[in-house]
């Protein structure tokens, strides 16, 4: 056995030296490399997991926000449409009222105008007949050559004008 070990150059001092080498390296690497690297890898892993969780949460929030946004926009559109419809209905109602008022005013104005016109017309006709009476008297006076016209003639003229007025009125009604 010793001969074999000698042949391979096995020496307990060298074995010990190599063992010590291993432990020196072990402590150097443990202190300077494994500790910091393992802790940073662990921290990085935790950070990445946190990041993934945050991303998932943010995506969910974004999705919720999108849904809320869509719902809000839909509500706003519905409300806007409703407001527009109400405004249209209100405007139509108002328009109808205004048209009705305008028509009523117009009718009043027309009626008043017609009354005034009729009054004026009556007055003018009365005036015309009064003047016609004077003209007729003067005409008769000139034709007959005597003055003043008697009461009887005056009554005749009045009757004649009355008949003329009835005929004119009938003629207007027929028109």
């Amino acid at each position: 056995m010793n001969e074999i070990l000698d042949k391979f150059g096995v020496d307990w001092k060298l074995l010990l030296a190599q063992g010590i080498n291993f432990f020196i390296l072990f402590f150097i690497l443990k202190k300077f490399v494994y500790g910091p690297i393992v802790s940073i890898l662990r921290k990085r892993k935790t950070d990445i997991e946190k990041g993934i969780d945050f991303t998932r949460l943010a995506e969910e929030n974004l999705k919720n926000a999108d849904e809320t946004k869509s719902a809000t926009i839909k509500d706003a559109k519905d409300k806007a449409l409703s407001i527009v419809a109400q405004a249209e209905a209100s405007a139509d109602l108002r328009k109808a009222e205004m048209l009705k008022d305008a028509a009523a005013k117009r009718d009043n104005v027309v009626a008043e105008a017609r009354t005034i016109i009729d009054e004026h017309k009556g007055k003018m006709i009365e005036g015309a007949y009064s003047e016609a009476e004077g003209f007729l008297r003067l005409a008769l006076e000139k034709v007959l050559g005597r003055m003043p016209v008697e009461e009887r003639d005056r009554e005749l003229i009045k009757d004649a004008l009355k008949e003329a007025r009835v005929i004119t009125n009938n003629a207007n009604q027929i028109k």
Partner: peptide, 28 residues
Amino acid sequence: FHVTNTLLLSWIVIVFLGILALCIKLGF
């Protein structure tokens, strides 16, 4: 204590790795 050529290279490896480890630690 007889220092062999393999032991010498082991020491060089340790020194090299030690420097490397120190560089990593300092520039961490």
